[in-house]
């Protein structure tokens, strides 16, 4: 297994205690990436308001692709439409996508979205956050991060951000849940999250350190060996049964040979 603490990957850090739910990030993403008015790659998640007047709290997070270190979407896609770029972003290639939506099932975060409103002419595709390669390749932060007025979203190298995240927890242990979501979840993600409320209240699934794709991939690995073995076994059985039957038949029918041969030539 890869050492998920030290992967060299571009990463986001989101701090729920800083986010004011202003949604500048979302608008920035829509403009930067030309997202249609009824679609989005980034959205608000979380329980929002909690409690009863006047004992209230609020928790929300900004949700987009986690850019998993071991992307399940990528494992699942039959035609290999997903790839993980060397520096982190998980990208989708619409030119090969067949629209099966298996990636949507596979992603434990519910990230990939499908164009249910497009027919064959427009072409229905998957869309999801790309980490803005057009920006990060030019030294800019992704659009959502760059505009965040409170620096609730930050962008950088995974190791650096992990360090910052742990420093923040250490500096304010009373304020944060003592865990950086995404550090290990699902094999580690390139979207790290700090929170003052349990992560489930931010709408994040409870995932172990193993990516959800693990079992599926292990079973897939058995396919070819199994198929070959099974084919051989079946052939063996077939031949065996046939030979056994022939022997039996030969013994039983030695007297009716003539009749058989006439029938054969019919």
């Amino acid at each position: 297994m890869t050492d998920i603490q030290n992967i060299q990957h571009k990463t986001f850090l989101f701090d729920a205690t800083r986010c004011i739910d202003c949604r500048a990030c979302m608008i920035a993403c829509s403009v930067e990436n030309n997202i249609p008015m009824d679609k989005t790659r980034i959205w608000v998640a979380g329980v929002g308001l909690k409690g009863e007047f006047p004992d209230l709290s609020r928790a929300s997070m900004v949700y987009h692709c986690m850019h998993c270190e071991e992307p399940d979407c990528m494992s699942a896609c039959p035609v290999g439409a997903y790839s993980k770029r060397e520096d982190g972003p998980v990208l989708y290639n619409k030119d090969v996508c067949i629209g099966c939506r298996y990636c949507m099932n596979a992603c434990p975060f519910g990230v990939p979205h499908f164009d249910y409103d497009k027919g064959l002419i427009d072409g229905a595709f998957i869309d999801k956050c790309t980490m803005c390669p057009q920006r990060i390749d030019n030294g800019l932060a992704p659009a959502c991060v760059a505009t965040c007025p409170t620096d609730a979203l930050m962008f950088g190298e995974r190791a650096d951000l992990l360090k910052i995240a742990h420093e923040r927890i250490a500096a304010h242990p009373d304020r944060y849940i003592d865990h950086v979501y995404g550090e290990t979840e699902n094999g580690g993600t390139s979207y790290l999250i700090l929170s003052h409320v349990p992560f489930s209240e931010l709408g994040l699934p409870n995932l172990g350190p193993k990516p959800v794709k693990d079992v599926s991939e292990a079973v897939m690995g058995l396919t070819i060996p199994f198929a070959l073995t099974w084919g051989a076994v079946l052939t063996g059985v077939t031949v065996g049964v046939h030979m056994y039957n022939q022997k039996k038949e030969a013994a039983a029918k030695s007297t009716t040979d003539a009749k058989d041969s006439t029938e054969e030539t019919k």
Partner: peptide
């Protein structure tokens, strides 16, 4: 300081 708020971001529209 390098940032725009939601309304500033939406200014294009």
């Amino acid at each position: 300081k390098g940032k725009l708020c939601p309304r500033g971001q939406a200014g294009v529209m």
